[in-house]
Design a binder for these strands. Structure first.
Lengths: 83, 83, 83, 83
DNA sequence: CCATCTGCAAATTAAC
DNA sequence: GTTAATTTGCAGATGG
């Protein structure tokens, strides 16, 4: 018993697959986002000011980005001189 | 040899702990975000239009959100008028 | 009698003007917000459940937003697979 | 020809009326919100920084003491963890 | 009054 | 590079 499977059917299959993969990953991301919220809630429950904690995290991230940049520049120079 | 541990020391410990936990979770989240990007890149490599795929994912999320609101307008009206 | 009017003076004037305009509009908005509250209060006085009424309004707004998105998922799929 | 008009019909009528009134008011509010946006856009077109203007408007509402409080709290936390 | 929640604005990221 | 869209943070509003 032969099946007729059109090209668009195949494309639809592949689209579904991509969409599913993204949705699974986004579900995971949502879980983590929820976890982060819970950490802040716990901090709040301990009497800390959440917006201030968020600011610290943000500042440290900025610092890290800058450090990463500097590091990769160093690595570039080093590779440039064959180290 | 006794140690003097001030309240602010203790608070500093706890702040550091909260910040570390958040940073670990955010690192995980970044990994997933990167994975999602890779899926879209792969789809693009297969000849699919990424913005369209993103729209599909977004619309499906909206639909789901609406479904999750499992109180229908009708039911709301009915409860509002005491049925 | 000549006046010395610096650029910063001019800028200050214009900033004040923008701020005033915004503040006037926000005052108007506050009046309307108050009106809305009064409608709900009146409904409550008539024995209706305010949170439910709010939900109805919110749901109807969502529906409208969705309708305004007149691209259906199907059409997106079709364009995505090149039909 | 007599009509049977139930109590729930009457209630439904009144609910519709309340909902309509709210929706009209919210439409007005949306117009004003749009106007405010336009003011900011115009300011931007004149070379002013919109977030700063927004801050001015917000600050004029806010209490200065609270601003100082937020700032000193941030500094306290940061010094606590040695930043 | 406190906790929750929706809506608004800022910022980051993507598309053109 | 500039607009557009998504994501995230914050505030003000609402209900208990």
């Amino acid at each position: 018993m032969s099946e007729v499977i059109s090209k668009t059917d195949v494309a639809a299959e592949r689209i579904s697959a991509f969409v599913s993969r993204v949705e699974r990953l986004e579900a995971d991301k949502d879980v983590i986002a929820k976890d982060i919220k819970e950490v802040y809630l716990e901090a709040k429950g301990s009497g800390f000011d959440v917006p201030t904690l968020r600011k610290i995290v943000a500042l440290r991230r900025k610092d890290k980005d800058k450090r990463d940049e500097e590091l990769s520049l160093l690595e570039l120079y080093m590779s440039a001189i064959g180290m």
